[in-house]
Design a binder for these strands. Sequence first.
DNA 1: TGTACATCAGTGAACGCGCGTTCACTGATGTAC
DNA 2: TGTACATCAGTGAACGCGCGTTCACTGATGTAC
Lengths: 195, 195
Amino acid sequence: VKKSKAETAKTRQRIVEVAAEEFRRNGIHETGVAEIMAAAGRTQGGFYRHFESKDQLVAEACSASMDQLVAAAKSAIESGNMAFLKHMDRFLSASHCEDWSGGCPIVFMGSELARADVNVREVVSEGFRELIDVMAGSGSGSRAARAEAILILSAMIGAVTIARILNDPKLSALVLKETKTHLANRFRRQQAEGG
Amino acid sequence: VKKSKAETAKTRQRIVEVAAEEFRRNGIHETGVAEIMAAAGRTQGGFYRHFESKDQLVAEACSASMDQLVAAAKSAIESGNMAFLKHMDRFLSASHCEDWSGGCPIVFMGSELARADVNVREVVSEGFRELIDVMAGSGSGSRAARAEAILILSAMIGAVTIARILNDPKLSALVLKETKTHLANRFRRQQAEGG
DNA sequence: TGTACATCAGTGAACGCGCGTTCACTGATGTAC
DNA sequence: TGTACATCAGTGAACGCGCGTTCACTGATGTAC
């Protein structure tokens, strides 16, 4: 049953969106093509009308996830310091550890991404570069500002990665809390000094 | 062909060691029981003489990996400040990004561990607790010292996780370098203040 | 504008493959007497 | 100490299952005239 071009495009987009979510939730390897298609309201056979392979979908889904992350960071930064602190708090919250909608792909698929194919790593790398740019003030960012962005990102991603693994909710919360207060203090000091 | 108790114990230990390495190298899901047994010099059928399931092996292998990590950190700390700085440098090196022998399980299997079963998460959590204790000076560690340990661990694990994903060796090296210098400065400042 | 036809999104079954696990079997080990 | 036998580490083939991918088919879409 052929569909109109508009509907075809919508289906494709829906597959990518659903896949991005499922990959973050269950991991790349543990999420099957059939499962994604079912979640998108289609059967598995139609998948290859839209993508050459699962790997291609992985790359597009990761790209979409990174774009979402960059957009959220950008919007928070453009809304001023308080908004950015709030954004960091949300990233370092217990709910982000469990809630994969809009979650960070590097946190949710970290070790799988390191082993992913070249296209996947490329789109994630590009997203990470954009994140640094956004946080350091676009292309005008000084080397120091870029370094600061890298440190913040490493600390946030490391903390949530660890918090998600830990079995003990108290220790998990402690890791998040210490990182949160540390980054908040650091950010405020930076703002006071830098302007 | 039954083997002596001594040989049986040696085989079991070898399976765990080999598995710890392979899981870090290729991931938990992508490493098969047959592959591990072959690397241990046995055939797959014998696996279930030693373990109830692959999951049980995953837990023991992760436990071994964490023990190794804790032992390395402990030894570095007991050898003084310079040795500890050197240890951090090695953790944050390009070679650690690629070299999974003795690598950090949280870095190499991060997102898989978060989805692993309760026993696996438990042994990793216990290892992480020990890491904090070792770095904060055993049970005698103050709350501030434990907080400091958590921050250092988050930053290191985050940085290497990211560096491993990035496709661009220059950016990868930058992430590691900035984290390295930041942590070294921080550590030296801490030592000067605290004693 | 109307008609004939090629296209192609979507279906659902099938393919080959690799996985974790089971099984019948082998023969050296270690124990009971 | 010697002998008979139960045990069990290890083998290699087989099991069922789920995966990514392919395929013949359907019928609405969009195009050529």
